[in-house]
Amino acid sequence: MSVYLLYVCMLFLYRPTGELHGPMSVGCVAGDGQSYILFCDFFDRVIEAYQNHKISKLQESDFNHDNLKGGDDFDRDYALSCEVSVVRGVDDFGFPTHCSRGERRQLFMLAKKALDQLAEELPGKLYSRAELSQDKEDKGVTVGAPSLSQLRNGVARDWPDSRAVWISKDGTLVVWVNIDDHLRLVTTRDDANIAEAFQCICVNILKLEALYKKLRHPFIWKQQLGWVVSSPADVGTGLRASVRVKLQHLPRHKRLEDVLRRLRLRMDNTDCSEVYNISNAQTIGLDEVGFTQLVVDGVKLLIRMEKRLEGEEKIDDLVPLQK
């Protein structure tokens, strides 16, 4: 199996995807958590190149949301909405790129048990992929057909068998099961209050972590890599914090690339003109609070720069030092 896993990773290394200010995908996948150990010479180099982080010290984790400063005070004329997500791999199972149908069904049953217990405190319901498509009531969640890359790398095998989405009754939390990884928790807010979104993720990922440990299948953790999942683009924290920001002048400024690099942020196009997703460019090297703080501070600075440019003022004095 190990030879097969290495072959899969080599096959998909660095396929370009045409992102505006950075790559959309790392271009390779792992078959299971042990692949990061067996093929560390390969995966370490990929992680270091993609995430611009030297794997040399232990990765830390911090889900104490009280340690985050700000995030509830963006200028709403510019900050439109936000999203925080975290992805997890479950120990003793192959990743979606390589797991068998039986493993995927076991993962589904584990998720159902854990989410049923989570629902005792945060009411919600687990919908299979078919139920979500057939239910006429708008849940605000759409699971589209597998992408071309998912078809190629094996994630879409047996689709849509054992794929599901858990949705909290109050709409604050969505949990994707076997869609692109074992688990992905997502919180979105229309008020751009990323502090509240981060708190929701922190509280519920810790509860699920405890429930999975109780079920004898903890989330995969490696000391130097942190939380390990199928994509090297997500190892470390598995966390993505993003804010949709309206920017008219800054995206055309000659210093933008330099500013984003120094802030350790990425800027992606959305389906709306002059609206961009600002998110953390890395997931390893800092803890969860640290990466969310980068986004909070960075978005505030970008909005400040935009306001300067609106008044036809220079922004050179606002360009930060390397974070």
Rank of each mutant, 00 (worst) to 15 (best):
218 P>D: 08
197 A>H: 10
187 T>E: 06
224 Q>N: 11
231 S>G: 01
210 A>M: 05
212 Y>V: 00
145 A>L: 14
120 E>R: 13
214 K>C: 03
165 V>K: 03
163 R>K: 06
196 E>T: 14
122 L>E: 05
224 Q>V: 00
183 L>D: 01
121 E>C: 05
122 L>F: 06
232 P>W: 08
154 G>L: 05
219 F>W: 15
130 A>I: 14
160 P>Q: 04
132 L>H: 12
202 C>P: 13
146 P>Y: 02
223 Q>E: 15
162 S>M: 10
160 P>G: 04
135 D>L: 09
214 K>T: 07
232 P>M: 03
149 S>R: 03
175 V>W: 12
142 T>W: 14
148 L>R: 07
155 V>P: 00
126 L>V: 15
212 Y>R: 00
219 F>H: 14
116 D>M: 04
183 L>Y: 01
178 N>L: 10
123 P>T: 12
190 D>F: 04
180 D>S: 15
141 V>T: 06
133 S>Q: 15
148 L>M: 07
211 L>F: 10
196 E>N: 14
212 Y>D: 01
124 G>F: 10
174 V>N: 14
217 H>T: 08
124 G>K: 08
223 Q>Y: 09
129 R>T: 06
120 E>Y: 04
155 V>W: 00
149 S>N: 02
155 V>H: 00
212 Y>P: 01
162 S>F: 06
202 C>S: 15
218 P>G: 04
177 V>H: 04
178 N>M: 09
127 Y>I: 07
143 V>D: 03
177 V>S: 05
195 A>G: 08
158 D>Y: 13
168 S>P: 10
190 D>G: 05
179 I>G: 00
130 A>C: 07
166 W>V: 11
139 K>N: 11
122 L>A: 02
118 L>S: 01
160 P>E: 02
227 W>F: 11
190 D>V: 05
201 I>W: 03
169 K>G: 01
227 W>Y: 12
142 T>Q: 09
121 E>A: 09
177 V>D: 02
121 E>V: 13
135 D>I: 07
195 A>H: 15
164 A>G: 09
187 T>K: 02
204 N>G: 01
226 G>R: 09
148 L>T: 09
164 A>N: 06
139 K>W: 06
202 C>W: 11
173 L>W: 12
202 C>Y: 07
216 R>G: 01
